[in-house]
Design a protein around this nucleic acid. Sequence first.
DNA 1: TCCAATGTTTCGCC
DNA 2: GGGCGAAACATTGG
Length: 245
Amino acid sequence: MEGPSIVIATQELDEFVGLRIIKAQGTAKLNFDSFKNKKLISTYSWGKHLILTFEHVCLRIHFLMFGSYRIDNPRDNRIPKLQLSYAGHEIYFYSCAIKIIDKNFQLSYDFEADVMSPVWDEDSALEKISLNQDKYVCDVLMDQEIFAGVGNIIKNEVLYKLKMHPELKISDLNKSFKKKLVHEASAYSHKFFEWKLANELKRNWKIFRKKTCPVCQNKVTKRLTGKLERVSHYCETCQPLKKEK
DNA sequence: TCCAATGTTTCGCC
DNA sequence: GGGCGAAACATTGG
């Protein structure tokens, strides 16, 4: 689950702020009894982290590759990591990593690095990528210290939009292209958010999991890229491996 | 039926 | 103790 999806989760879960929890259960290592009669105080997102603050504890939920959450619509034959029961409603979190974090977590999170945050800072990201001259753009885009919230879908779509080959090095980019990279990482993430809300996300993918390039119709290349060896989908014609000006 | 994959943390070695 | 890679974890659509 990528950053924009986590923002949507915070919005959905905000409906439960201030309501009394009747019961908590699940397979996570938590003291479920301590949730009884407590309330959710607020929700935050930082990149792919979903942060829920309760009266007595703060939880950080990470959905990793396969995680999901449901409200009032449980998955069949799945035991949630955490289930919160309210009067008339249930929240389920599946296949996620849940960690108790300090109440002062905001001090240790750099929200300027979150591509979905109102305080996302392009200048700061520009400085950070410039310290990574020898790294591949596909790897740098996935660096959560620089582009918190960007996942493999956003990575591929951003590179396609900018006509950048995944294995260009940062040093191959002039300042103008570096600025475009930083800007588009956040801009595309916001579009991802709008499309997902409208239930038309996949329809708007241009290159991710596509067979042919929508511009030139050539076959899309799919292979492991970068030092991180994550899959990239890209068009050899539209995203040539040559130095940008 | 099989298997890659919207990802990160932890472990063990050097 | 840092840096690194491998392994662990866990799910499901295609």
